[in-house]
Amino acid sequence: MALLDYFLRKKEKQVTTASKAKERLQIIVAHERNNRNKQPDYLPQLTEDILNVLRKYVQISDKSLSINLDNKGGELNVLELNIELQDENNPD
């Protein structure tokens, strides 16, 4: 019977439990990573608007503004705004 098993096993390899495991993991891990890094849809627009307001008063490049929404656990969300102002005497 061992001989028979040996040949039959080759065919079964098409859908092994290991490949099922890998497929399921890839899906769930991708999903969870997505949630982890999720930022609300309005962030790009908000960034753009803030930049425009700032530009009324100071010269500022796109890169000098970083905006970040951080979930501090539970219901507390912190919107973090980081604006780098250029040195007026030494713009680069």
Partner: peptide, 9 residues
């Protein structure tokens, strides 16, 4: 035997 995730997986 296809029963366990491989290192590469």
């Amino acid at each position: 035997e296809g029963e366990m995730l491989s290192v590469e997986d």
